[in-house]
């Protein structure tokens, strides 16, 4: 049974959809936690502490990283196979198809943007928090405590360039997930003519909620940073 996940096209898509589903759930929680930062600095830092270098958080981090890696590696394998299947000679003229989402045709590119954003995000946050904790440090290079997530957020989004980079990242995420979420159900076989409109509606709503949540934190903290400066 193990092998069909690697050597059959539908099996590979199953892996994509399960890892994808897992990542969607993760960022949904992540977004929910971020919203706490807007409301309560202490609350957010409590979460940061809870999810620091504790064994359960580390296990989860490893699983999460594996999910990202598998989703990413499979994406490249699938794309490589698909390009090969397309043949050496490409069409001279291609046109859009009625009823076909732009995002669905550009999932890899969107995915790469998402991964790129993730790398920046990891440098901004993870490398200054959990990584430092693992290394045994109690303070990061910026001088904040490793569990002081709120301070790090405030610092990062006080820079308008960071805000713009993050917003681009969120936009790519929106497109990626708007196709990814309903596609996940399709790959699992949990879809039909009646459910397509519902699934697509669900995907759009969910994606929009996630992206708005993230964007609210980035923009909120930028505005706060303006207010804070004026106040100081």
């Amino acid at each position: 049974m193990g092998t069909f996940l690697t050597n059959s096209s539908i099996g590979r898509k199953l892996v994509m959809s399960i890892t994808g589903a897992f990542l969607v759930l993760f960022i949904t929680f992540h977004m929910a936690m971020n919203l706490v930062a807007l409301i309560s600095t202490e609350g957010y830092n409590m979460i940061c502490e809870f999810l620091g270098a504790n064994w359960y958080a580390l296990v989860a981090t490893v699983i999460l990283a594996a999910g990202v890696v598998v989703h990413f590696v499979y994406a490249f394998i699938l794309t490589f196979q698909n390009r090969k299947a397309r043949g050496n000679v490409r069409y001279a003229v291609t046109s859009g198809h009625k009823g076909v989402d732009w995002a669905s045709q550009n999932m890899l590119v969107l995915g790469i943007i998402v991964i790129g954003g993730l790398a920046i995000h990891m440098i901004h946050f993870w490398s200054k928090m959990q990584l430092q904790e693992i290394m045994g440090n109690h303070e990061n290079a910026l001088g904040y405590a490793v569990t002081d997530g709120s301070a790090l957020i405030a610092y990062t989004f006080s820079n308008p360039i960071n805000v713009i980079v993050y917003l681009v990242w969120f936009a790519a995420l929106w497109f990626h997930l708007s196709h990814g979420i309903w596609s996940m159900f399709q790959s699992l076989g949990w879809a039909n003519q009646t459910w397509y409109p519902r699934l697509k509606c669900l995907a759009t709503a969910w994606t929009t909620l996630i992206v708005l949540g993230f964007a609210a934190v980035a923009i909120g903290f930028y505005i706060k940073s303006l207010g804070c400066c004026a106040g100081c």
């Binding site: 096209s9 196979q81 698909n82 299947a85 397309r86 198809h97 009625k98 076909v100 399709q186 790959s187």
Partner: peptide, 16 residues
Amino acid sequence: DELGFGNCTNTGACEA
């Protein structure tokens, strides 16, 4: 799969 067809990514272009 053996004949070298690609993997479906649910774009829906086929249906269109």
